[in-house]
Design a protein around this nucleic acid. Structure first.
Length: 334
DNA sequence: AAGCACACCAACCGCCGTAGT
DNA sequence: GACTACGGCGGTTGGTGTGCT
């Protein structure tokens, strides 16, 4: 059944808060704390509904709220977290001390989202907006028909493939995804999209660590862990080809699965004997935005809170790229 | 100066999950 | 299990400010 409105329409004020109301609310909470929002306005002498009081407190009056412009580090953190969490503003806000979900949401919608759109990047999927491949191409390809098909492998190369297709592919293969051990440790790249299918576009692509729209809780590091490069050479991938298609977002992907804690140098894509990504380390990296994110690229631009939109945009272009030092490293990753 | 369009952001709305009865 | 109250969340709205013509 439907719920009653959170507040009676009789006599309860709406709209912008006055200074007097703010003072009443602050004074009451300082003396009594905030527990029962339902009864708080009455006790505090406010003609507001509890919901309105809670919102005013959590989004504006709370003493630990940091006001003012977002720093570039904060902005980058938001982008990184959004690529993983999606529109989970409260979850993102939890990683940005002093910022509220509402503030982050507003900032995303008014600044970051527009910038990404200008860059041709879908702010929802964090991938280029153009559909690079149509479904029939994928479904008719050896990729789909392969008896050893494992779409989860594509997580590591989803930068090469339309994410919508990957979603569908993952859906189709959901039964396979229930089994973490189905993937043998050899012959991994057998069913990857051949480069010839990927050369139809020069559009730089980017990706997120997580398959778009797949809840974080459903993401299994093993999907990526099982992804390695032994058969990469079969596909005759060349480093220049990869550069054409592989500007994956850094998004913490600098780290190597299994290398927990993360290496201190996150400036380039890392690869070591484990050939693994560490999703945990990704998250821990994200939680530590102080780790000099502006050093991600050698041609990085010095970004400050005073940087222009163009400078930020330029930097964001780099943010959506992987550094791929050479073919060897890429193979190790794959 | 007036009118318009756009940007920004505080606040609201409606839905959902959970706990209590 | 059904119902209700409540807190929390994400999407949206609308008022205000700003810049352009």
């Amino acid at each position: 059944m439907g719920r009653a409105p959170c507040c009676d329409k009789n006599g309860l004020k709406k709209g912008p808060w006055t200074q007097e109301e703010d003072e009443k609310l602050i004074d009451y909470i300082q003396k009594n704390g905030y527990g029962n929002w339902r009864t708080l306005p009455k006790n505090a002498g406010l003609q507001r509904c509890g919901k309105s009081c809670r919102l005013r407190w959590t989004n504006y009056l709370r003493p630990d709220i940091k006001r003012g412009r977002f720093s570039f580090e904060e902005e980058e953190t938001i982008i990184q977290l959004h690529s993983i969490l999606g529109n989970k503003w409260s979850a993102i806000a939890a990683r940005l001390p002093g910022r509220t979900d509402n503030e982050i949401k507003n900032y995303w919608n008014t600044h970051i989202r527009k910038r990404l759109l200008r860059m041709g990047i879908d702010p929802v999927t964090h991938t280029p907006r153009l559909d690079l491949l149509d479904l029939s191409t994928i479904l008719n390809s050896s990729l789909y028909n392969s008896s050893q098909m494992n779409f989860s492998r594509l997580i590591g190369v989803q930068n090469l493939v339309n994410p919508q297709l990957l979603r569908l592919a993952n859906l189709l293969s959901s039964s396979q995804l229930q089994n973490q051990d189905f993937l043998p440790q050899n012959n991994h790249m057998q069913s990857l999209v051949p480069p010839c299918q990927l050369q139809n576009t020069d559009i730089p692509t980017c990706t997120t660590l997580e398959t778009p729209n797949v809840p974080l809780s459903q993401f299994r590091p093993s999907d990526v862990t099982n992804f390695n490069s032994q058969n990469c050479q079969q596909n005759e991938w060349k480093s220049n080809q990869i550069e054409d298609y592989a500007p994956i977002s850094n998004y913490g992907c600098d780290y190597v699965y299994g290398s927990d804690p993360p290496p201190s140098d996150t400036s380039t894509f890392q690869s070591n004997s484990s050939n693994n990504f560490s999703f945990q380390s990704v998250l821990s990296n994200i939680s530590s935005p102080s780790s000099s994110p502006t050093q991600l690229h050698s041609n990085s631009i010095q970004i400050t809170s005073n940087s222009t939109e163009e400078e930020k945009e330029s930097y964001c272009s780099n943010l959506f790229k992987f550094d791929i030092p050479d073919m060897l490293d890429v193979n190790e990753f794959m």
